[in-house]
Design a protein around this nucleic acid. Structure first.
Lengths: 143, 143
DNA sequence: CCAAGGTAGTTCGTATTACCAACTAAGTTG
DNA sequence: CAACTTAGTTGGTAATACGAACTACCTTGG
């Protein structure tokens, strides 16, 4: 097996893991009437109060897309808009108590759903995987 | 740090990696006028000739969604429908030569885009990460 | 053998996601 | 302070996704 091949195999595993995790997140989102994107929005807002453009940048979306996402989530009472005191143009976005609660419930569900797959690893392997992923993620790390 | 916390941290890293890889795939898809889903369709068809329902099952989508995805990709000449000789109801889907070419180009682009992140790991670590991901993916492994 | 039921795909209607372009309101700067 | 820039919204369009209803084709029980 050449170096090329093993890199390919790693990328393949990485992509399959990605789709596996995405599938879990999508399912849990759907069970709570949330798209994957809305789920991500809530996840980002857990510990941030970004303005609309920042949120769009995190997600790699256009600001006009953000407007719609925020509208729908706001209508559901999950988050709210606030005007920045320093910049009259800026709108920042934050979780409502209801949104925070839902986010916590989602967290539990996600942990629960991924537990079997993670449980296939020994505790030592889990630590190792975590460390390797942190390396993989290292710079340019938003979200 | 309790076992709970370290599991949380691992899941966090896993989810962030997922979004990182998804971002890369989405960008490369967009550069080739493909949605993430269409990219996945091509990826699956690389080494399979599934019927519509199987494809939908792989992707976790409804068959009606598949119809549309296949329509659009077929119109672009990337894949084609064939009737199964054994079951007159069934339609199987396969890459055209053009689709296969595009898929190979995508493959190269994906490898290229992920190379920097993977390159942050020593060759030994890459092997290790690969092994751990295979464990993580172990059963129920479609796609 | 064929009527009843099940399976494979498509079509239709609707909501969401996403983009771009055009717009308004609010800062910033020459 | 006029000209430019930036933040966000609005409107138009295409793709994605679902569910329900439909057609065509198996499969089976009487």
């Amino acid at each position: 097996m050449t170096a090329e091949d093993s890199a390919s195999a790693l990328i393949d595993a990485l992509v399959r893991s990605t789709f596996r995790v995405t599938g879990v997140l999508t399912r849990i989102g759907a069970e709570n009437d949330l798209s994957l994107t809305q789920l991500r929005v809530l996840g980002i807002l857990r510990d941030r109060r970004p303005r609309v453009t920042e949120l769009a940048a995190y997600l790699g979306l256009d600001k006009s897309t953000m407007s719609g996402l925020i509208d729908r989530a706001e209508r559901r009472g999950l988050l709210a808009r606030g005007r920045s005191p320093h910049d009259g143009r800026a709108v920042d976005v934050f979780l409502t108590p209801a949104g925070r609660e839902l986010t916590q419930r989602l967290d539990v569900q996600i942990r629960h759903a991924l537990a079997p797959a993670i449980g296939r690893l020994e505790p030592g392997q889990q630590t190792q995987l975590h460390a390797l992923l942190e390396f993989f993620l290292e710079p340019a790390g938003t979200d």
